[in-house]
Structures are given as structure tokens and as C-alpha cells.
Design a protein around this nucleic acid. Structure first.
Length: 592
RNA sequence: GGGGGCGUAGCUCAGCUUGGUUAGAGCACUCGACUGUCACUCGAGAGGUCGCGGGUUCGAGCCCCGUCGCUCCCGCCA
């Protein structure tokens, strides 16, 4: 398949069964070893490494001299014969290690300057600084690890396309130049030359377009969609990213969740992992109650418990005042935590405080005795509720749930890490369902969409609490793996009047304002919209997990730094004033 | 927008605690030797704006202030 007019095989593909074959190979000089009369070159292509041998019995002196002179990372084309290696000279570390090619000619077709970064690395060599790897990305991407990552990414893209296409989903493209939506994340804006003073935005997601496809009757859509958000970056967040975007008509939650489980299993299988479906499900309320988090890592326990009832009678000021004010006392039991030093527990308290808690109450049981600031106040009922075994440590937060949940989440995760409870090979998939529709700002009372403004509400909740939207649950669902959000979606509002009411509840302007900003969606819905819904998966994150990496930058060919800068091509950059003038734009930055 | 870490040869790092002659090592590079290596080995050599700017000092890679870059985290990410 890879044979061309210039080469016959891929270097890394040759095996013992190819012995005796005359080959012409093109590749990069990974490393070379010059033993005097004998020269070895490890030739590399995307398939792997191959040892090429230049010896006087089959190659002329001029060929050997040329092989000895070629620098690493140069591109060469060699001719020769595949030979089995003598048993004692085989290399078990190399897929091609049972053979070598005895070369009769070498031609340097792409001489390389001395590389700024090493591509061939020793077993214990550290990677160069990421800044340098990004600046010299053309070299970094030659590394077998990154080649493997991008080739895996390709396979995951293809298997996703095949899976969805086979099920009748149409791959439809949506615009990259779109309308600014001043909700949610910041948009990347693109000035219009033709229309002075007006701007496009790059899409944060194809959300509205895919809903319009449903209105058009393309009842199953998908796209491997590039999305853009002008927010600050993280290890797992890039300003442009790829999502598997799916939408379908005449479906409910169960349809989307079943389809998604199949898709995820298919993708994981492509990477060599079997996934058990159906996935566990848990309501948002249960997640928050038991784990303090809407995407819990279920590879370990350390569940959060409520001790409010048994602490209500305690004559202890801290818990007393919180409970009287409507708060709760919640916490986790840490087996073996009693052995931790004061300093170690203080560090945990630091985590809780950084998450907003006032402090972390500790009770430990050592040699049958309870210890800690609250110990002497404990009633027999409270002791029984804590249910500490010898060596256990209880870590409690007395506060409103809004404060205690994130604090206990942080503490729980750190305790699991310290206790070695996190099984790196385990995969615990989870559906989180029944999110609230709205998040109510505790200060202003304003409602904000937890998912997005197009999500449909649970009809029973709307009927039961018509005037208390903060009690409505959304028909939304998140797919979680080991505490990471893989994707999320919802059933959408397909009634334009209901959609308009949602905008009103969210404080998105009057009717005229709604028409101006979201009219193109409302018009589509009014023209006859089927019930529909969908989901989007973070494809980069999936690729990262399946390639075994921890940074999105290792599965994206040309990523941005955390300062949202491209170091290789050096973007963004200033442009000549004349270019700005043509766009009717003037920079306010000094010195421009 | 805020906080932490890092920045010394092409690469990875030591040196900084306690300021003091000519800033070191490994790899890579150049030259030489070597016919079975596979991180070849051996010998020799070259290679430095100690991120940048300012300050303290008789003297700064080292101390202080500022700044830039990368990175991790918080905010943010409907």
C-alpha cells in the first residue's frame, strides 16, 4: 500500500518473512553507529525503526563513507536487501529486530541541519522543555510517541465517522464564521471588511445550527466540529478544540444515552479497551450528596455522609451556629487517616479552605479513644453516627451545601490519592442525569442556565412547580469517566413559545432583543420543529485519555500555550496599520 | 484578573543555602581511531548575553526590585 515510484516498503514494517526481498526505503536517520569498516543507520518512518547495515561485503567504500557522513534527521533513500539477523544479533526491543537491510546505495535527499532538539532519546532522557518542543514542533512531532498519538487520533476519528454514518447519521458542516452570542464563554471575533464595524464570531459550538438541521428534517446529524472559546487555558483546555457533535430527532434521553454508550465502547475498543455497558447512572442530586461533585470519580469510595441529625444536639459552637442557620455537618471517613500528622491534615484543611470552607473539623480514633477539638462534645449518638473504627479519621465541614460540597470534593480526591485508592487502570463510566435547569445566584437571585438555554425541562417538574423554575430538573445528561467529563447533552426545547420563556427566565432581554439575538433559532422552531436532542463529546480529551497522556497538547498537532499563543508559527501577531484600516479597526494598544 | 513553580552550552542539569581567581557534567556537535553495533566504544576539540533591565556591593549566575517567557492552579470556561 505504501509503495511508490520512489520506495518499496515502510522501514518499520519489515519482518523476518520479508527476508531476501530487495527493497528501496525512504526515511529519517534516527541514529547511526560507525564501527570503522561497518556503519549502522537506524532508519525511521511513521511505522518505526529499522537497522540498515553498510558493510564492505555488499557496499562500496564510497557508499560506506557516505553513510558514515550523513547527519541525524536527514532524509535518505537507500537500496538493499532484507536479511535475517544472526540469532545473537537480534534486537528484541525493535519490531523489526529480527532483520536488517544490507544496503548497497544511499542517497541523501533531504539533508538536515543539526536538530535543535534531540528526536532520538535515551531510555532515561527527559523531554526538552515544552516551550522548546512547541517552538520546534516539526522536530517534536517526529518523536515516535507523538506519531503514535496522532495516528491513534486518526483512527478514533475514522471509527467515529464509520460508527455514526453506519447508523444513518449525516456528516453536515456548519459555518466557522458565525454570529456572536454574548452568552457564556467569550467569542473569538472576526471583523468584516465588507461591512464596516460589524463582526463575525467563531463558533463556541454548532449548537443552534444543529438544531436548525433538525427543523430541516436532517433527522440524524453529526460533525467532528472545531469549536473556539476565548477563555484562559488549562492543561485540558485549548482555545480551539474538536468535539463529536451529535443531534437527532424523534428521540428521548434513553435513545441518546444508548447510542452514546455504543459509540464510546466503539472508540475505546479501537484503542484496545473493552467497555462494559450500560453505564452506571446517578442523579445530580445524589452525586452532590454522596460526592460533593457533579462528575464524581467512582473508582474509589470515601463517600460523603450527613451527620447533621446527630450533631444537632451538640453543645459545640461551630456546628451549632451552622445548623441553626440551616447548614449541615457533612464529611468523609478516612480509613487509616488517624496516622496522618498534624501537618498532613492541615494541608487537607488548606484544600478545603481554598475551596471556600471556613475550616475542616477532624475527629480521629486512636487506641479506642476519640481525639480532636470536637471530641469532648460528642454525644453517644454522634459517636455512633461517625462510626469510626480504630485508626479512622473523620473530616467534616459545617456549612451550607454550596460551600461544603466543593470543599469535601477536593478533600475526598486528595485523600484517595494519598491512600493509593485510585486504580489507574480502572474505567468507571457514569451518566449524571437530572441536573437542575437553573443555577440561582445566591446574591442577586438571577437565574443562569446550568447546561445551556436550549435545554428542555422535566415536564413533571414544570407542572408541579410552575412558578419555581429553580426547582425544575433539566433533561440533560453528562457522560463521566473517572471524574472527567467526556461529554454532555440534553433534550432541547422544540416549542418556540417555551424557548422564548426560557430566554425571559434567564433575563435575556425582551421579545425584540430575543428576536435580534436568537431569532434565527426561534424562526426555525416556529416553522415546525420535531422533538430533538443530542450530545457532544470532547474528542481531544478522549484522544488524550486513550493515548495515555495527561496533556491535550500531546494529541493536538499544533497546540497553543497556556497564554493562548502558537509558538511555532508565532501567532497571534500584530498586523500592519494599513490592514487594520481596511477592516475599519484601530488598535488601542500603545505603540501601535 | 490573582497565586505557586521554572528560566545557566544545541538538549538535560549541577553550581545559588553562606556573593570571591578561568561557570562545570552527561548527551548532541567537529576531528581522529575502530568490521557486529543497536543509548557502540575510545581519544581530542569547539561550544556561555547565567531570560532581559535596573539596584546593592570592592566584587553578582548567586542577594534585592522590576520585567518577559513557559508551566501548574484559582477566577473564568452558558
Amino acid at each position: 500500500m505504501f509503495a511508490t515510484t520512489q520506495r518499496s516498503h515502510l522501514c518499520g514494517a519489515l519482518r523476518l518473512s520479508d527476508a531476501g526481498t530487495a527493497v528501496t526505503l525512504g526515511g529519517w536517520v534516527h541514529r547511526s553507529r560507525n564501527l570503522g569498516g561497518l556503519v549502522f543507520i537506524d532508519l525511521r518512518d511513521r511505522e518505526g525503526l529499522l537497522q540498515v547495515n553498510f558493510g564492505p561485503d555488499w557496499a562500496g567504500a564510497d557508499v560506506i563513507a557516505a553513510a558514515a557522513a550523513v547527519g541525524v534527521e536527514s532524509v535518505v533513500i537507500i537500496e538493499g536487501t532484507v536479511m535475517p539477523r544472526p540469532a545473537e544479533m537480534r534486537n528484541a526491543d525493535l519490531a523489526t529486530g529480527e532483520v536488517e537491510v544490507q544496503a548497497t546505495s544511499i542517497r541523501v535527499v533531504g539533508p538536515a541541519v543539526t536538530p535543535a532538539l534531540p528526536v532520538a532519546r535515551g531510555k532515561n532522557d527527559k523531554l526538552p522543555a515544552e516551550e522548546l518542543r512547541l517552538r520546534h514542533r516539526y522536530l517534536d512531532l517526529r518523536r515516535p510517541e507523538l506519531q503514535a498519538n496522532l495516528m491513534l487520533r486518526h483512527r478514533l476519528l475514522q471509527v467515529t465517522r464509520r460508527f455514526l454514518s453506519d447508523r444513518g447519521f449525516l456528516e453536515l458542516e456548519t459555518p466557522i464564521l458565525t454570529k456572536p452570542t454574548p452568552e457564556g464563554a467569550r467569542d473569538y471575533l472576526v471583523p468584516s471588511r465588507v461591512h464596516p464595524g460589524e463582526f463575525y464570531a467563531l463558533p463556541q459550538s454548532p449548537q443552534i445550527y444543529k438544531q436548525l438541521f433538525m427543523c430541516c428534517g436532517f433527522d440524524r446529524y453529526f460533525q467532528l466540529a472545531r469549536c473556539f472559546r476565548d477563555e484562559d487555558l488549562r492543561q485540558d483546555r485549548q482555545p480551539e478544540f474538536t468535539q463529536i457533535d451529535i443531534e437527532a430527532s424523534f428521540i428521548g434521553r434513553e435513545d441518546i444515552m444508548a447510542l452514546s454508550e455504543e459509540l464510546v465502547a466503539c472508540i475505546w475498543r479501537e484503542a484496545g479497551h473493552e467497555v462494559a455497558a450500560p453505564f452506571q447512572r446517578m442523579s445530580y442530586a445524589d452525586c452532590m450528596e454522596r460526592y460533593g461533585c457533579d462528575r464524581p470519580d467512582l473508582r474509589y469510595g470515601l463517600e460523603v455522609h450527613d451527620f447533621t441529625a446527630s450533631f444537632a444536639t451538640l453543645d459545640f459552637g461551630v456546628t451549632r451556629s451552622v445548623i441553626d442557620a440551616g447548614g449541615r455537618v457533612r464529611g468523609i471517613r478516612v480509613p487509616g487517616g488517624a496516622a496522618w500528622s498534624r501537618k498532613q491534615v492541615d494541608e487537607l484543611e488548606g484544600l478545603a479552605k481554598s475551596a471556600g470552607a471556613g475550616g475542616l473539623l477532624r475527629v480521629k480514633k486512636a487506641e479506642g479513644k476519640l481525639e480532636g477539638p470536637v471530641a469532648k462534645f460528642l454525644t453517644p449518638e454522634a459517636e455512633e453516627a461517625l462510626a469510626l473504627a480504630d485508626g479512622d479519621l473523620a473530616l467534616l465541614v459545617a456549612a451550607t451545601d454550596r460551600i461544603s460540597s466543593p470543599a469535601l470534593d477536593r478533600v475526598r480526591q486528595e485523600c484517595a490519592r494519598r491512600l493509593g485508592l485510585v486504580d489507574e487502570h480502572a474505567r468507571h463510566f457514569l451518566w449524571v442525569t437530572d441536573f437542575p435547569m437553573f443555577d440561582k445566584d445566591p446574591v442577586t437571585g438571577a437565574l443562569a442556565a446550568v447546561h445551556h438555554p436550549f435545554t428542555a425541562a422535566n415536564a413533571d417538574d414544570v407542572a408541579q412547580y410552575p412558578d419555581a423554575p429553580e426547582k425544575w430538573r433539566a433533561l440533560a445528561y453528562d457522560c463521566v469517566l473517572n471524574g472527567l467529563e467526556l461529554g454532555g447533552g440534553s433534550i432541547r426545547t422544540s416549542d418556540p413559545r417555551v424557548q422564548s420563556r426560557m430566554f425571559t427566565l434567564l433575563g435575556i432581554g425582551d421579545e425584540a432583543e430575543q428576536e435580534r439575538r436568537f431569532g434565527f433559532l426561534l424562526e426555525g422552531l416556529r416553522a415546525g420543529a420535531p422533538p430533538h436532542g443530542g450530545i457532544a463529546f470532547g474528542f481531544d480529551r478522549m484522544s488524550m485519555l486513550l493515548s495515555g497522556g495527561t496533556s491535550l497538547r500531546d494529541v493536538i498537532a499544533f497546540p497553543k500555550t497556556t497564554a493562548a499563543r502558537a509558538l511555532f508559527e508565532n501567532a497571534p501577531t500584530t498586523v500592519p496599520a494599513a490592514d487594520l484600516a481596511e477592516l475599519n479597526i484601530r488598535s488601542t494598544v500603545d505603540g501601535e
